[in-house]
Computed example of a mutant assay.
Amino acid sequence: MEQSGRNILDRIVIATAPSVTSQVYDWMRERVLRGELAPGARLSETEIAGAIGVSRQPVREAFIRLASDGLAEVRPQRGTYIGKISVAAVLSARLIREAVESDLARMVAADPPVEMLARMAEEIALQERADAEGAVEAFIDSDDRFHRLLATGARQEAVWHDLEKLKSQMNRLRHMSMRAFDRAGTIGQHRDILEALRRRSPDAAERAVRAHLRQMLDELPRIAARHPDFFTD
């Protein structure tokens, strides 16, 4: 019976394209995270639907999904607005990320895969080029890949996916900080992490990761002071 069940499942082919709502949601979410839709900005179903060539219904549904993520706020009789950045959510995500990534670094440092070290070095080189060209989005994409390699090297990809679900508010701040502050400092911290891994030093790797991720504790109050209307407790 078990074998028969597997045969049935093997014959099932799922080839469903992403729904229009999901595509609109992904498009809008990315713009919120990048700061292209600023905190507090009012969203218009009609304008967005017209701009991307869809009906208002999937846009309305995307608004609801954004609100459930804490990225938008639906105000009855007033409209939908981009949510402000929650300081509490940023600090919580940063704390969890530090705890998890420092443990991943210790795990990897005990026996770092050669391929992982090579790919980390490649990402640092990409970050240097992106920094020189002022390509902030390319820099952030490379930064994400660099950190994901820690989970990959520790064979803990699922952990990275769990972290991704937690750090939407943190990512919004990252996009602001990468534009406002010296990206060379981030590159230097990545080099420190890579060097500790190459030396197979779990203690040094943990220290380097913790120092790197605590940088946000200095950046957050400075950005919030520059843009007080973008933040909420």
Rank of each mutant, 00 (worst) to 15 (best):
S86W: 04
K84Q: 15
A208Y: 01
R94N: 15
K167P: 00
G153A: 13
G188F: 00
D111A: 15
S4T: 11
E157H: 12
S22W: 10
E47H: 07
G70E: 02
A89R: 13
D192L: 10
E157M: 13
V159G: 09
G5P: 00
F230A: 15
D144R: 15
I14H: 10
R145F: 09
A154T: 06
A125Y: 01
A138G: 06
I48R: 08
S102F: 02
M178V: 04
T152S: 12
G83S: 15
L166A: 07
E128L: 10
A67M: 03
I124M: 10
R65A: 12
I82A: 08
R179D: 04
L126Q: 12
G50Y: 03
L104F: 06
G5M: 10
E36L: 13
I85K: 04
A151C: 08
I82Q: 08
Q3K: 14
L150C: 01
L66V: 03
W160H: 15
Q215N: 10
K165S: 11
E73D: 12
M107Q: 12
V209S: 07
A204G: 01
K165L: 12
G50D: 05
G134C: 05
R31M: 06
V13S: 10
A196K: 11
A184I: 00
E123C: 04
G153S: 08
A99Q: 06
P221V: 06
I8V: 15
A110W: 05
R94D: 14
L163A: 10
E137F: 06
T21Q: 14
R222Y: 03
A17V: 04
I64V: 12
Q127I: 02
I64E: 13
L173D: 04
I64D: 11
G134T: 04
R42L: 09
M116I: 15
A89F: 03
V100K: 01
S177A: 15
S142H: 08
D203H: 00
A154D: 08
R172M: 13
N7C: 07
R75S: 06
L149H: 11
A158T: 13
R56M: 10
R210V: 14
K84E: 14
L220C: 07
L66S: 05
I187G: 03
V20Y: 05
M1C: 05
A17I: 02
Y81A: 05
I48L: 13
A204V: 02
I187H: 01
P76T: 08
F231R: 09
V90R: 05
D162K: 04
Q23H: 05
M170H: 12
A110F: 07
E164V: 12
R31V: 04
R145N: 09
G53N: 03
Q57K: 12
M107C: 09
D218G: 07
T186L: 00
E122W: 01
A184K: 08
Q77K: 14
A225V: 06
I140E: 11
A125I: 01
D69F: 03
T16H: 05
K84P: 02
A196C: 08
